[in-house]
Protein backbone atom coordinates (compact mmCIF):
# COMPACT_ATOMS: atom_id res chain seq x y z
CA UNK A 1 0.00 0.00 0.00
CA UNK A 2 1.54 3.34 -0.97
CA UNK A 3 2.10 5.85 1.85
CA UNK A 4 0.05 8.52 0.07
CA UNK A 5 -3.16 8.15 -1.94
CA UNK A 6 -2.30 7.23 -5.55
CA UNK A 7 -4.64 6.04 -8.34
CA UNK A 8 -5.07 2.27 -8.14
CA UNK A 9 -4.73 1.81 -11.88
CA UNK A 10 -1.25 3.42 -11.84
CA UNK A 11 1.24 1.15 -9.97
CA UNK A 12 4.96 1.71 -9.41
CA UNK A 13 6.37 4.96 -10.75
CA UNK A 14 3.35 5.69 -12.96
CA UNK A 15 1.13 6.98 -10.13
CA UNK A 16 3.96 9.04 -8.61
CA UNK A 17 4.57 10.78 -11.94
CA UNK A 18 0.93 11.92 -11.90
CA UNK A 19 1.04 13.06 -8.25
CA UNK A 20 3.25 16.12 -8.80
CA UNK A 21 3.42 17.13 -12.43
CA UNK A 22 5.91 19.96 -11.87
CA UNK A 23 8.56 17.53 -10.60
CA UNK A 24 7.52 14.71 -12.96
CA UNK A 25 8.06 16.82 -16.08
CA UNK A 26 11.84 17.33 -15.71
CA UNK A 27 12.28 13.72 -14.52
CA UNK A 28 10.50 12.49 -17.66
CA UNK A 29 12.45 14.86 -19.91
CA UNK A 30 15.78 13.75 -18.43
CA UNK A 31 14.85 10.09 -18.92
CA UNK A 32 13.78 10.62 -22.52
CA UNK A 33 17.08 12.37 -23.34
CA UNK A 34 19.23 9.77 -21.59
CA UNK A 35 17.47 6.60 -22.72
CA UNK A 36 16.14 7.61 -26.14
CA UNK A 37 18.18 10.64 -27.24
CA UNK A 38 20.56 10.60 -30.19
CA UNK A 39 24.17 11.73 -29.92
CA UNK A 40 25.17 14.63 -32.20
CA UNK A 41 26.49 13.55 -35.60
CA UNK A 42 30.01 12.15 -35.36
CA UNK A 43 29.76 11.25 -31.66
CA UNK A 44 29.23 7.66 -30.69
CA UNK A 45 26.70 6.69 -28.12
CA UNK A 46 25.19 3.62 -26.56
CA UNK A 47 22.27 1.91 -28.27
CA UNK A 48 18.85 2.21 -26.66
CA UNK A 49 19.05 -1.46 -25.70
CA UNK A 50 22.41 -0.92 -23.97
CA UNK A 51 21.02 2.04 -22.06
CA UNK A 52 18.02 -0.01 -20.89
CA UNK A 53 20.48 -2.69 -19.72
CA UNK A 54 22.08 -0.10 -17.41
CA UNK A 55 18.62 0.82 -16.06
CA UNK A 56 17.74 -2.85 -15.50
CA UNK A 57 21.09 -3.60 -13.82
CA UNK A 58 20.89 -0.66 -11.39
CA UNK A 59 17.25 -1.44 -10.54
CA UNK A 60 18.21 -5.06 -9.93
CA UNK A 61 21.08 -4.05 -7.60
CA UNK A 62 18.66 -1.78 -5.71
CA UNK A 63 16.15 -4.68 -5.56
CA UNK A 64 13.36 -2.48 -6.94
CA UNK A 65 11.13 -5.08 -8.52
CA UNK A 66 8.89 -2.71 -10.48
CA UNK A 67 11.73 -0.88 -12.25
CA UNK A 68 13.77 -4.03 -12.75
CA UNK A 69 10.87 -5.83 -14.45
CA UNK A 70 9.92 -2.83 -16.61
CA UNK A 71 13.44 -2.06 -17.86
CA UNK A 72 14.39 -5.72 -18.31
CA UNK A 73 11.34 -6.02 -20.55
CA UNK A 74 12.30 -2.86 -22.45
CA UNK A 75 15.87 -4.17 -22.92
CA UNK A 76 14.54 -7.56 -24.10
CA UNK A 77 12.29 -5.89 -26.68
CA UNK A 78 15.05 -3.61 -27.95
CA UNK A 79 17.67 -6.39 -28.10
CA UNK A 80 15.26 -8.91 -29.58
CA UNK A 81 16.16 -11.61 -27.05
CA UNK A 82 15.91 -12.21 -23.30
CA UNK A 83 19.30 -13.79 -22.52
CA UNK A 84 21.51 -10.69 -22.35
CA UNK A 85 19.57 -8.75 -19.70
CA UNK A 86 19.24 -11.87 -17.56
CA UNK A 87 22.99 -12.58 -17.86
CA UNK A 88 24.04 -8.97 -17.15
CA UNK A 89 22.03 -8.95 -13.92
CA UNK A 90 23.53 -12.31 -12.86
CA UNK A 91 27.19 -11.59 -13.69
CA UNK A 92 28.46 -8.70 -15.81
CA UNK A 93 31.80 -10.33 -16.63
CA UNK A 94 30.34 -13.49 -18.19
CA UNK A 95 27.41 -11.76 -19.95
CA UNK A 96 27.36 -11.82 -23.77
CA UNK A 97 28.26 -8.13 -24.20
CA UNK A 98 31.36 -6.32 -25.50
CA UNK A 99 34.35 -5.51 -23.25
CA UNK A 100 33.35 -1.83 -23.53
CA UNK A 101 29.85 -2.60 -22.30
CA UNK A 102 31.17 -4.76 -19.46
CA UNK A 103 33.39 -1.90 -18.32
CA UNK A 104 30.52 0.61 -18.52
CA UNK A 105 28.16 -1.73 -16.65
CA UNK A 106 30.80 -1.99 -13.91
CA UNK A 107 30.92 1.84 -13.75
CA UNK A 108 27.12 1.82 -13.43
CA UNK A 109 27.29 -0.79 -10.66
CA UNK A 110 29.86 1.31 -8.78
CA UNK A 111 27.71 4.43 -9.21
CA UNK A 112 24.78 2.50 -7.72
CA UNK A 113 26.89 1.75 -4.62
CA UNK A 114 27.91 5.40 -4.29
CA UNK A 115 29.45 8.07 -6.48
CA UNK A 116 32.75 7.95 -4.60
CA UNK A 117 33.11 4.26 -5.47
CA UNK A 118 33.69 5.09 -9.15
CA UNK A 119 37.49 4.75 -9.37
CA UNK A 120 39.87 6.15 -11.98
CA UNK A 121 40.76 2.51 -12.77
CA UNK A 122 37.14 1.61 -13.52
CA UNK A 123 36.87 4.62 -15.86
CA UNK A 124 40.25 3.82 -17.45
CA UNK A 125 39.09 0.29 -18.24
CA UNK A 126 36.06 1.68 -20.09
CA UNK A 127 38.21 4.16 -21.97
CA UNK A 128 40.73 1.46 -22.87
CA UNK A 129 37.86 -0.54 -24.37
CA UNK A 130 36.84 2.43 -26.54
CA UNK A 131 34.25 4.23 -24.41
CA UNK A 132 33.93 7.96 -25.13
CA UNK A 133 33.49 10.73 -22.57
CA UNK A 134 29.86 10.96 -23.64
CA UNK A 135 29.29 7.27 -22.99
CA UNK A 136 30.98 7.43 -19.58
CA UNK A 137 28.92 10.51 -18.70
CA UNK A 138 25.67 8.92 -19.80
CA UNK A 139 26.43 5.69 -17.95
CA UNK A 140 27.00 7.53 -14.66
CA UNK A 141 23.95 9.76 -15.07
CA UNK A 142 21.64 6.89 -16.11
CA UNK A 143 22.81 4.89 -13.09
CA UNK A 144 22.30 7.92 -10.81
CA UNK A 145 18.84 8.60 -12.32
CA UNK A 146 17.74 5.03 -11.67
CA UNK A 147 18.84 5.37 -8.06
CA UNK A 148 16.39 8.28 -7.92
CA UNK A 149 13.60 6.21 -9.49
CA UNK A 150 14.28 3.13 -7.38
CA UNK A 151 14.36 5.08 -4.13
CA UNK A 152 11.23 7.05 -5.07
CA UNK A 153 9.30 3.89 -5.98
CA UNK A 154 10.44 1.91 -2.91
CA UNK A 155 10.43 4.81 -0.44
CA UNK A 156 6.75 5.52 -1.16
CA UNK A 157 5.91 1.78 -0.97
CA UNK A 158 4.24 1.77 -4.37
CA UNK A 159 2.69 -1.41 -5.70
CA UNK A 160 4.65 -3.68 -8.07
CA UNK A 161 2.22 -5.84 -10.07
CA UNK A 162 3.14 -9.54 -9.97
CA UNK A 163 1.47 -10.42 -13.28
CA UNK A 164 4.14 -10.51 -16.04
CA UNK A 165 1.51 -9.38 -18.54
CA UNK A 166 1.57 -5.92 -16.92
CA UNK A 167 5.25 -5.49 -17.81
CA UNK A 168 4.66 -6.72 -21.37
CA UNK A 169 2.33 -3.77 -21.86
CA UNK A 170 4.55 -1.29 -19.96
CA UNK A 171 7.71 -2.46 -21.77
CA UNK A 172 5.97 -2.04 -25.11
CA UNK A 173 4.86 1.47 -24.11
CA UNK A 174 8.31 2.69 -23.05
CA UNK A 175 9.94 1.19 -26.13
CA UNK A 176 7.41 2.49 -28.62
CA UNK A 177 6.24 5.74 -27.02
CA UNK A 178 9.13 6.66 -24.77
CA UNK A 179 9.07 8.49 -21.47
CA UNK A 180 7.17 11.67 -22.19
CA UNK A 181 3.75 12.10 -20.61
CA UNK A 182 0.97 11.15 -23.04
CA UNK A 183 -1.40 14.04 -23.75
CA UNK A 184 -4.08 13.90 -21.05
CA UNK A 185 -2.03 11.67 -18.77
CA UNK A 186 -3.29 8.23 -17.82
CA UNK A 187 -7.03 8.48 -17.05
CA UNK A 188 -8.66 5.62 -15.14
CA UNK A 189 -10.28 3.01 -17.35
CA UNK A 190 -14.09 3.09 -17.35
CA UNK A 191 -15.58 0.92 -14.60
CA UNK A 192 -16.24 -2.63 -15.75
CA UNK A 193 -19.82 -3.14 -16.93
CA UNK A 194 -21.87 -4.90 -14.34
CA UNK A 195 -24.85 -7.10 -14.96
CA UNK A 196 -27.92 -5.49 -13.53
Amino acid sequence: MPYIPLPEHLPGITGLLEYRLDTAMPIRELTQILLRGDAPAGESSLTQGERELIAALVSSRNCTNFCEAAHTKAADLLLGETETARAVKADIETAPVSEKMKALLQVAALTQQGGRDVTPAAVARARQAGATDREIHDTVLIAALFCLYNKYVDGMATVAPTDPAYYDILGDRIVNRGYNRPPGGHPAPPPAATNV
Binding site: I4, A144, K151
Partner: peptide, 24 residues
Protein backbone atom coordinates in the same frame (compact mmCIF):
# COMPACT_ATOMS: atom_id res chain seq x y z
CA UNK B 1 1.00 13.61 2.45
CA UNK B 2 2.89 16.29 0.52
CA UNK B 3 5.57 16.54 3.21
CA UNK B 4 6.14 12.79 3.08
CA UNK B 5 6.13 12.73 -0.71
CA UNK B 6 8.44 15.72 -1.01
CA UNK B 7 10.87 14.35 1.59
CA UNK B 8 11.14 11.02 -0.22
CA UNK B 9 11.53 12.63 -3.65
CA UNK B 10 14.02 15.23 -2.38
CA UNK B 11 16.11 12.47 -0.81
CA UNK B 12 15.95 10.26 -3.89
CA UNK B 13 16.84 13.22 -6.11
CA UNK B 14 19.88 14.12 -4.02
CA UNK B 15 21.00 10.50 -4.16
CA UNK B 16 21.04 11.07 -7.94
CA UNK B 17 22.83 14.44 -7.82
CA UNK B 18 25.38 13.13 -5.31
CA UNK B 19 26.20 10.09 -7.48
CA UNK B 20 26.44 12.24 -10.60
CA UNK B 21 28.75 14.80 -8.97
CA UNK B 22 31.01 12.23 -7.24
CA UNK B 23 30.75 9.54 -9.92
CA UNK B 24 32.41 11.88 -12.42
Amino acid sequence: DGDIHDTVLLSATFCMYNRYVDGL
